[in-house]
Structure formats: C-alpha cells, structure tokens
C-alpha cells in the first residue's frame, strides 16, 4: 500500500500527524503536511486509514501498489 498526499489541498489541521505520527509530519514554515514514509509498514496501516478518514480536506489517499 502507498500513501498519497495532495499537498495543495492540505489545511495544516495536524490531524494526520496526531493519527499517524510515524507516517506524517508538518513543515516548519506553515504546518503543511508531508510524508515521512510513502510505503508505511503493515502495522501503521490502521493509523493511516484513520488519518484518511479524519483529514478535513480529504487530502490523503491510501492506494494499492
């Protein structure tokens, strides 16, 4: 599974960092999210799914390889 982050859509709510801190982080200059891990480990997938669900801008997708 691969994570896709649509950066222009991001509104810097920080929800993904709270849900999956091992996969997402935020830029220092404006809090916009970026990926730490494009292909998260299997035991992180539930956290990523939660991030997908709570991202207020629908900017995150989890796609089959």
């Amino acid at each position: 599974m691969r994570v896709e982050l649509d950066e222009p859509k991001c509104v810097a709510s920080g929800q993904c960092v709270m849900a999956a801190p091992e996969v997402f982080d935020q830029r220092d200059e404006d809090g916009i999210a970026f990926l730490l891990e494009e292909k998260p480990a299997a035991d992180s997938l539930d956290d990523v799914r939660e991030a997908v669900a709570i991202c207020p801008a629908a900017a995150i997708r989890l796609v089959e390889q």
């Binding site: 509104v11 810097a12 920080g14 960092v17 709270m18 801190p21 982080d25 935020q26 830029r27 220092d28 200059e29 404006d30 809090g31 916009i32």
Partner: peptide, 17 residues
C-alpha cells in the same frame, strides 16, 4: 482564505504545540 490561513498555521503545528 488559504493564503491568509497558511500565514498563521506554523505555531499551531503538532510538534510546536
């Protein structure tokens, strides 16, 4: 909205908080 919002979001980022 996005232009202005992004000017104030940095201090509210999870790690800064």
């Amino acid at each position: 909205h996005a232009r202005l919002r992004r000017m104030v979001t940095a201090p509210f980022a999870v790690k800064r908080v």
